[in-house]
Design a protein around this nucleic acid. Structure first.
Ligand code: SF4
Ligand code: SF4
Lengths: 152, 152
DNA sequence: TCAGTATAGGACTAAATATGTCGGAATTTC
DNA sequence: GAAATTCCGACATATTTAGTCCTATACTGA
């Protein structure tokens, strides 16, 4: 419940890895997978999905691989999760077609939709750059503090 | 991914329903389940779990049922989710025993732990009372605005 | 005291989702 | 042309979620 999929997790790891190596022209899925012990074929698919969504650039052939398509500061965690796992909803109802049958008479749908927006906002406020920068565990509040407004 | 379980959903619905009827001494699981078309036995278990965690009071026998154990203002959505679905973690690693094998050399674990705390904070800031009050869809920002500090 | 109503809880099944694998085709470099 | 690599769909497996069944226990009121 309310858990990130490993695919999204893997995707974030890979992006962070790429963000930390801006000089390298490209890294193959296998390279990254081996570094972290992630199943190579699975990671390959994840990178492909991100490529389709414009987060990565890909290049086939020898010395090919993937590179960030944009500055890591303008790639949000939200965007990554969206690319890998599809639309982001904490409830089952908003999930397009076969949602929840209670949708019509459910009374907590609206409040939860706002919670959903808030969490999405949190995720949107985090960039790949933020992940890459937080290498040294900050003593206390060293990172940039962000304010998220929540209306319930 | 990052989706609330239906059990937590059902639990919140039931609590809201109870919060809106402070005068009634108790409502049975069946009553609530029938009102919303939720599987009765499933809801019963959910209510039992919340009773064990001290969110509800229960009473067997005729005219028995469940009632809020505390003021709805001091029951948070976080607490409810915790009672129903167990410890709240968006990542697999922090999940006690059989987590993720990457835990040792994973570089995004720490940042994600902070995201986890932020989301938990959002959930903690929402009370059952908030859910019950938001009945009339507010025009815009009618609800109490809350600020959540996020350090990445 | 007994019948009816309700909670309590274990064991189980079924459905859905997440995770990982296989096999092959297309692309690029050397 | 051979090796490295992305690309893509179909498949298989594992885990989680959702829901059911059955039985025991507790309380109420006639
Ligand atoms: S309709 Fe209500 S119960 Fe169904 S998924 Fe949406 S919020 Fe949850
Ligand atoms: S260790 Fe890293 S990859 Fe594994 S679950 Fe935690 S954050 Fe995700």
């Amino acid at each position: 419940m309310l858990k990130l999929t490993k695919k999204a997790d893997y995707g974030l790891i890979a992006l962070k890895y790429l963000a930390e190596r801006p000089e390298t022209p490209a890294l193959s899925a296998k390279d990254i997978a081996d570094t972290y012990g992630i199943p190579a074929q699975l990671l390959a698919k994840i990178l492909q999905q991100m490529t389709k969504k414009g987060i990565l650039r890909s290049h086939a052939g020898m010395n090919g691989g993937y590179a960030l398509a944009r500055d890591p500061r303008v790639i949000s965690a939200y965007e990554v999760i969206l690319a890998i796992d599809g639309p982001f909803f904490i409830t089952s109802c908003t999930k397009g077609a076969r949602g929840c049958e209670l949708t019509s008479n459910c009374t907590i749908k609206e409040p939860l939709a706002r919670v959903n927006e808030t969490i999405a906002g949190v995720l949107k406020s985090i960039s790949i750059q933020d992940l890459a920068e937080s290498e040294p565990p900050p003593a206390h509040g060293s990172g940039a503090a962000k304010l998220v407004s929540l209306a319930v």
